[in-house]
């Protein structure tokens, strides 16, 4: 600050009368309002598109199903159904309601005697868990690594990007299969394996953005004012790459669900948990197609398709916000 004898337009400001806590509160209020405005605007732009709106409704529907699964599903998904209460004869290959009006099962039962409808409902939990966790971590790790590599450059950049290069050399599905085979078939291991391989592309793109952002004069201005590296990364770089991370996160949902379904279909899914992929796998194992039992494998297929397409459409809609030229 200037010395006392200097003329200054700030000289008459009495700093001692200012209430520090009140200033803090005002700052938080301001930030909150600005965030609301920004988010509101993006929400309006996103919901402008009918397809995006439909996709969001679909996604919301599946989320509601996943959350309220125990109330919707009539049975536990991995509890065998029996023809009588004596639990002697398994009720397998039962026709669904719309074919056999006597049936008590909405979509019939599987060859193992599981209620297909309940499996379908509970399967949404696995799909959304995989999709959302993978998306959060893909976007999160990718953004952090990308910003660090892009901002610091030099050796840090080289090291991180060589790791990314290494990961780029590994194909998604085979690697997930090997990792799951090594770590054991559980849903968490599948999620872990997907995350390990998915953050690479986010990191690449965010790094390239950070590289160009750090040379921009507003970053230089902050440096001249004495801003720390963390301050610049969090206040100047992150807000400018955040739309891009959201975009990659939205696409990651769809990819992760597909990868999980694929892994489960091959038979490496979690045996203690139902997912749409494991449903497909067991329907194939019991040759449901040959028996014409389409209500076993068509519903999970449709659900996977709907969720994945919704994910892509939301990502696509968000892409138009981040890159107005696509509109």
């Amino acid at each position: 600050m200037a010395t006392q004898d200097e003329p200054s337009i700030f000289a008459d400001l009495d700093d001692s009368t200012v209430d520090e806590s009140e200033e803090q509160v005002n700052r938080w209020k301001r930030n909150l309002r600005l965030w609301r405005e920004t988010l509101g605007e993006q929400w309006r732009m996103l919901t402008n598109d009918l397809l995006v709106k439909l996709a969001m409704v679909t996604m919301a529907f599946f989320m509601a199903v996943a959350i309220f699964a125990p109330f919707i599903a009539p049975h536990q998904p991995l509890n065998r159904q029996y023809e009588t209460d004596a639990e002697l004869i398994i009720a397998d290959w039962v026709d669904p309601m719309f074919i056999d009006s006597e049936s008590v099962y909405v979509l019939g039962t599987t060859a193992e005697g599981f209620d297909i409808f309940s499996q379908l409902i509970y399967g949404s939990r696995a799909a959304l868990l995989v999709g959302l966790l993978a998306a959060v971590f893909t976007a999160g790790i990718g953004t952090l690594v990308g910003l660090t590599a892009g901002y610091y450059g030099g050796k840090i950049d080289d090291t991180l990007m060589r790791i990314v290069d290494f990961l780029y050399g590994m194909p998604l599905l085979p690697t997930v299969i090997i990792l799951v085979a090594l770590l054991g078939p559980s849903l968490w291991n599948i999620i872990f394996a997907i995350i390990v391989l998915q953050w690479r592309s986010t990191a690449r793109v965010i790094r390239s953005q950070a590289l160009s952002l750090r040379e921009r004069p507003f970053v230089k201005a902050a440096q001249v004012a004495g801003a720390s590296d963390w301050h610049i990364i969090s206040r100047h770089l992150a807000p400018n790459v955040l739309p891009m991370s959201f975009l990659y996160g939205a696409f990651a949902i769809a990819w992760a669900i597909l990868a999980e379904a694929g892994v489960s279909f091959i038979g490496l899914g979690d045996p203690n948990r139902v997912s749409w992929g494991t449903m497909l796998q067991s329907s194939r194992a019991y040759a449901a197609l040959d028996f014409g039992v389409w209500w076993w494998f068509v519903p999970p297929g449709i659900c996977i398709g709907l969720v994945v397409i919704s994910g892509f459409l939301i990502g696509r809609g968000y892409e138009e916000i981040t890159n107005p030229e696509l509109r």
């Binding site: 700093d15 200012v18 200033e23 005002n26 004495g226």
Partner: peptide, 10 residues
């Protein structure tokens, strides 16, 4: 950055 008070007035 420099933790100076009376932000709004300044």
């Amino acid at each position: 950055i420099h933790d100076i008070r009376n932000e709004t007035a300044r």
